[in-house]
Design a protein around this nucleic acid. Structure first.
Lengths: 231, 231
DNA sequence: CAAGTATTCCAAGGAATCGTAGAATAGCAG
DNA sequence: CTGCTATTCTACGATTCCTTGGAATACTTG
């Protein structure tokens, strides 16, 4: 084989290796459980390092380090907001990537499916986005956002009311009787909605969860709202 | 805070950590450049360890180890075929995951975009799948599969002819003059089609590449064929 | 400009991963 | 049953990643 040709192939291989190395950088960013959890949290809206650390139960220093790993991989971006640094997902494609990872995991790894069932409980019938949209229009259902208040404020399904799961029991009386309650939270792997539905049913209410969560609703282009919750 | 409540939260956190750990297993599988390349090769069709090792320029032992990492993560499956072990992608969702990783990488990491351009050359206008379908029906174009013969045999666009890139120059005369030549290969990050198009244009032919590659064509539900190429 | 605080940086130990080389295994073919 | 070959297993050093604790930095706010 002539030298020129061999050089061409070697150059090709080096460029190909470099490209795959770059792809693997994204894989490495997804290779740590804390980073996956942080991405899930950021899908609800932008957050400071401090809040992310608290919600994912790690130290601030560790959260900062993971956030910078994510930033180097292009998955998150940041801005300064007053005295703190606010991180956000770099784009909708990042959430779609996260969704693909979780879907493959639960669909293809038996242990992952088991872990999901252990955390979420056995899957129950969910309300589709289309059905919910219709029933809200006809006043046939009330939509409850079970996430922490700050996540509701950063963005929520238009017309939903905010009742963080911890406060749900105390606010049962505020929920109208007669109509079905549809609860939602962060996404398909968030335990708030299943737990809320179980609590509501235990209290004798008709309740179901919405399929998936707020990020999927927003990405579907359905009506959303933002801002503080009414007193 | 009552003990019962704290226990509940602690149990929750353990279950949540375990779930995120499972998600991260998939991320770890994508965290190595050789594994990414192997997935790209397997998207063309099932392959033995030996062939995968040769095509990705690594030793057999290393290929075997990576394949088992991928299998533990649920991304590939294997069967025994005669004297060899044949690996395949575990499902179409795995290719979609790979596509999401590569798309985020090139879209969000400047170095990755640079590496893609270095390997593939500057992007040129591609033929859409819909357009190609139409022009093949009207006999207005000829479709050339530039991948190695074995990948063509494992599955190709219906009506395409197989001319591996290395043989393209020698088979120029077989390509009809007058009609445009549409070349395709493994996917959007495969260099065969860009190189083939450059060669054809250098020989005075009208040539463009198909957008993406064979896996995307198949996943779009468009007509495919399999089997050895005509002599 | 000074004080306060959120975040980042740094150092270090321990764990996991990577790639190589060679031995061991498994299953087909004769 | 025996030989052959593709694949897997094992052991190892080198490298990278993870986490912690504390020091350093940067920026806002008054």
């Amino acid at each position: 084989m002539p030298l020129e040709r061999r050089d061409g192939i070697a150059r090709d291989r080096a460029a190909k290796d470099e490209l795959h190395e770059q792809f693997a950088r994204v894989g490495r960013a997804l290779a740590n459980p804390h980073r996956v959890e942080i991405l899930d949290l950021l899908a609800q809206g932008e957050r400071s390092v401090e809040v992310l650390a608290a919600r994912s139960a790690i130290t601030i220093g560790l959260a900062s380090a993971h956030l910078q790993t994510l930033r180097r991989a292009g998955l998150v971006a940041s801005r300064r907001g007053g005295t703190r640094v606010i991180y956000r997902l770099a784009g909708d494609d990042v959430y779609e990537l996260l969704a693909a990872v979780r879907s493959v995991a639960t669909g293809r790894i038996a242990d992952a499916d088991r872990a999901a069932r252990a955390y979420l409980g056995e899957p129950v019938e969910a309300v589709s986005r289309a059905e919910l949209l219709e029933r809200v229009r006809s006043g046939d259902a009330v939509v409850v956002d079970l996430r922490p208040a700050e996540e509701f404020e950063a963005g929520h399904i238009a017309g939903a009311i905010s009742i963080p799961l911890a406060e749900l029991e105390a606010h049962l009386a505020e929920l109208p009787a007669g109509v079905e309650i549809v609860a939602y939270c962060r996404g398909p792997y968030c335990a708030l909605a299943p737990q809320g539905v179980a609590l509501l049913r235990g209290a004798g209410r008709r309740a179901r969860r919405l399929e998936d969560g707020f990020p999927e609703w927003r990405l579907a282009g359905l009506p959303v709202a933002a801002g503080s919750r009414p007193a």
